[in-house]
Write a protein that binds this DNA or RNA. Structure first.
Lengths: 223, 223
DNA sequence: TTCAATGCTAAACACGTGTTCAGTCGGAGT
DNA sequence: ACTCCGACTGAACACGTGTTTAGCATTGAA
C-alpha cells in the first residue's frame, strides 16, 4: 500500500486505489471505479495487471506484506499481550488495511485465512506466556482455546461491522476502537470470573469425552 | 418455506427456490437461476414478485415467519437453555433456513439484524433464569454480557462457515453440529473456570470506569 | 360462443461488467 | 533523425444481469 516514496508509480497508485475500493465496497467493486479513483483508464488497469483477479491477488499480497511489516514494527507492544487488532485500530492510517482484511474475512479469501491463522498462532504464544507467568489459567487444550478466543473475537467484530457498517469507511479505526472498548467489559468479566457457578457442565463433558485431543494436554491440576 | 400443502402454488415454489438459492449462493444469485430451479421462466418470477428486491423482501418475511414458528414449536427445549441454534442444527430440514440466516448475517440484511436481536433478548432471559437458579454468576451488566455471548458465538460460527464453506450446502446442519461440538469444550472450560487467575484486570477496569451503564447494575457482591 | 382475465413464455431491451483492439503520445537508444 | 517500445486511451466487444413487451394458451363467466 502507500509506498514509502512520495511519488508512487502509476501501477502502485492503481493497486492502492484498488485496496481502498475493495475495502470500502467489497471485491465486487468495478475495475472502472478503481480506474477512476486512480485517475486512469480502465484499460490501463488491465494493461498493468492482466485481469481483475490478478489485481485482486496482488492486493492480497500487498496487504499481507503490510501486515507483516506492521507486526515487525511493533513487536514490543505485541509481546505485551496486545493483539495486532489493537495496533491496527490505534492509528487511522491502518484503516484501509483493516477494512481490506475484514472484507477478506467476509468473503473467505486467502488474506482472511492467513490472517486468522497468524492471530491464532500468536494467541497460543500469548497464553503460553500468561500461563507461565501465572496470570492465565492453563487449559486442557491450549490450541483449541486459542482458536476459540481468536475466532470469537474476530467473528464478533465482523458481525458488528457488517450489521452496522460505517458511513465513512475512513472511520473504521474509530469503530474498531469503539468495539474494543464496549466489548472489553463483558469480556474481562467473563475471563475473570467465568460464567457458571458450578463445574458440573465441564465435569460432565470430561466424563463423557475422556480427554480432548492430546496436544498439550499435560493434564494440569484442576485449579 | 416448504409450505404445509403437498401441492404448493407456483408462486410459493418460486419463493422456496429463491430462499434455497439465496442460502446457497448468496443474494447475488441470479433471477434466472432461481427460475430454473423452480422450473419456470425468469419473466414469471418478475411477474409474480415485481422485482428481485421484492422477492428478496418476501423471502426475508418467509424465513422470519418460519423462525417464529420453529421457536413456538420448541418452547420447552428452548426454556431448558438450549439456543435456537441447536434447534436449527438438530434437523436437516432447517438447513436452508439456517443458510439463509447466515447469508443475511453476512450481508447485514434485516433478517440477520432481527435474528440477532431476538437471540440477545432470549439470552437475557436464559441468563436471568440461570442466575436465579444459582447456576450462573451474576454480571454487573447483564445486557452487555448477553450481547457479548450471542455476538461472539454467532460471529464465530459465521467466520467458520465463511472460511470453510460446505461443499454441499445441504450439509449445513451437519457443519453447524460439528461446530457446536468442537467449540463446546473451550467454551465450557472458559465459562467454568474463566481465563485469568487474578481479578487484577477486572478491578483495574472497574477502578478506571466507576460503573458500566446502570442497567441491571445492582452491584452484586463480588463472589 | 364470446369475452376477459390469468398463468405463463420467448424474445428482446437497457445496462453494467471485464476485457480487447487499434492507435496515439513521448522519451530513450542508435 | 529515425526507430522502437512502453505507458496510456477511446471505443468497442462479449456477456450476464434485471426487466419489459408482446403474445400464447387455458379457464371461468356472461
Amino acid at each position: 500500500m502507500r509506498s514509502a516514496s512520495a511519488d508512487p508509480t502509476t501501477r502502485e497508485r492503481i493497486r492502492d486505489a484498488a485496496v481502498l475500493r475493495f475495502a470500502r465496497d467489497g471485491f465486487g467493486a468495478s475495475v472502472r471505479s478503481i480506474a477512476t479513483d486512480a485517475g486512469v483508464s480502465p484499460a490501463l488497469v488491465i494493461h498493468h495487471f492482466g485481469s481483475k483477479d490478478e489485481l485482486h491477488a496482488e492486493c492480497d499480497e500487498a496487504v499481507l506484506a503490510e501486515i507483516r511489516k506492521a507486526k515487525n514494527e511493533s513487536i514490543d507492544e505485541l509481546a505485551a499481550g496486545q493483539s495486532i487488532l489493537h495496533r491496527f485500530a490505534a492509528a487511522d492510517e491502518y484503516a484501509p488495511m483493516l477494512g481490506y482484511v475484514l472484507r477478506s474475512l467476509q468473503n473467505g479469501g486467502p488474506v482472511g485465512q492467513t490472517f486468522i491463522e497468524q492471530m491464532i498462532e500468536d494467541a497460543v504464544g500469548y497464553t503460553k506466556h500468561g500461563v507461565e507467568a501465572g496470570l492465565v489459567k492453563p487449559s486442557r487444550d491450549e490450541p483449541a482455546r486459542a482458536r476459540y478466543l481468536v475466532l470469537s473475537a474476530l467473528g464478533m467484530l465482523m458481525l458488528e461491522i457488517t450489521l452496522r457498517p460505517p458511513e465513512d469507511p475512513a472511520d473504521l479505526g474509530a469503530i474498531v476502537r469503539d468495539f474494543l472498548t464496549t466489548s472489553y467489559f463483558p469480556m474481562i468479566e467473563l475471563y475473570t470470573q467465568g460464567f457458571f457457578t458450578t463445574r458440573r457442565m465441564l465435569d460432565e463433558y470430561l466424563l463423557y469425552v475422556p480427554d480432548p485431543p492430546q496436544d498439550t494436554a499435560t493434564e494440569p491440576a484442576s485449579d
